[in-house]
Design a protein around this nucleic acid. Sequence first.
DNA 1: ACATTAAGTGATT
DNA 2: AATCACTTAATGT
Length: 211
Amino acid sequence: MLKEKVTSNFGHVFESNLIDEIVRVGMLKKVQENDLLLDVGQKFDKIPFVLSGAIKIIREDENGDELSLYFLERGDTCNISFGSGLNNEHSKIKGIAERDSEILFIPLEKLEEWMIAYKSWRNFIINSYNARLSEMLEAIDTLAFMKMDQRLYKHLKDKVKIMDSAILNTTHEQIALDLNTSRVVISRLLKKLEKEHKIKLFRNKIEILTS
DNA sequence: ACATTAAGTGATT
DNA sequence: AATCACTTAATGT
């Protein structure tokens, strides 16, 4: 059963020997929405692979100010973890389950082993770094070049994609946290979007209109 | 009925 | 775009 899940997510990238090994050493963990998976300052001895759901990756400073960077989706892995994991560093980011998810944890030692043993593994890691770097660039771009109203609308659309639903169950406060701004600002901008018929507002709920 | 939490809004910086 | 200060609305106990 675990094997099917791994195969359906990674079957096209890994040879079957490697899949067998992943299934053998991997620990499957089901997490619920809003579960904290990885906190700032934490050390890791295992690396997460997202089999289903989505994980929100957050940057957090000393004061606890937060900013959402990007999401990990099925088939993704957090390579910041093994970059710093291999160097025995502490985490500089925080990961929270954006929705109910299944995560497969792989012990860190295996990763090094597989780097040497499997070509498909090396490719996967490199591609993964590449994908994550692109997402970081995107995050920087929106941060640097977009005004708050655009950032907000983008954030909503991103969430719609991640949640696979046009209806988001969230609060203005939560969005403000994600974008590192104040609730009042979000409320105003959301109101503006509603007047432009881009969204509909409810309590604890936002519907994003397409068309 | 009362308290708490979410959301709306004018005025100011 | 942020903050203050307050109002209104929805929900929980």
